[in-house]
């Protein structure tokens, strides 16, 4: 499996630490953030590929954080996560461009699949942009 960078954003320490541990074991590079603000600081560095984002957090909630992520790093894919399903945040999140929506408690395998899919999408997206750039450069040789 390809290695990529994942950020787990959740105010629940137990869940965050456990998820980081399990995903790291599966060969991903994983870090955590306990709040939306903290998450944005990490995402600004540009090293994150996929974010797992809890919708319900004190302070800046998941939906708001998602909006900021899309503005900061539009290529970063975001998988939303909630403790209990909320119809409204589910659709809201998708509209803001989240990759998908998962419900807690989530098992490792489905999460891993989702993360892989999200990363795949990001990679293809980047490839496309790269090819477009190459084309552009070829069309206008300097």
């Amino acid at each position: 499996m390809k290695q990529f960078n994942v950020l787990i954003v959740d105010d629940e320490d137990e869940f965050r630490d456990l998820t980081i541990k399990r995903l790291t074991k599966k060969g991903l590079i994983v870090e955590g953030a306990e709040s939306g603000r903290k998450a944005l600081d990490i995402i600004k560095t540009g090293r994150i590929d996929v974010v797992v984002l809890d919708v319900k957090m004190p302070g800046m909630d998941g939906i708001e954080t998602l909006g900021h992520i899309r503005a900061l790093q539009p290529l970063v894919e975001v998988v939303l996560l909630t403790g209990h399903a909320s119809v409204e945040s589910g659709i809201e999140g998708m509209k803001l461009g989240a990759f998908d929506y998962l419900m807690k408690p989530i098992e490792l395998e489905p999460l891993l699949e989702k993360l892989n899919d999200a990363y795949e999408k990001k990679r293809l997206h980047e490839e496309k942009i790269e090819q477009a750039m190459i084309k552009k450069h070829m069309a206008m040789p300097s």
């Binding site: 209990h84 399903a85 909320s86 119809v87 589910g90 659709i91 998708m94 998908d100 929506y101 419900m103």
Partner: peptide
């Protein structure tokens, strides 16, 4: 949760 899945 089912209705959320459906709508999403």
């Amino acid at each position: 949760s089912k209705i959320t899945t459906i709508l999403v």
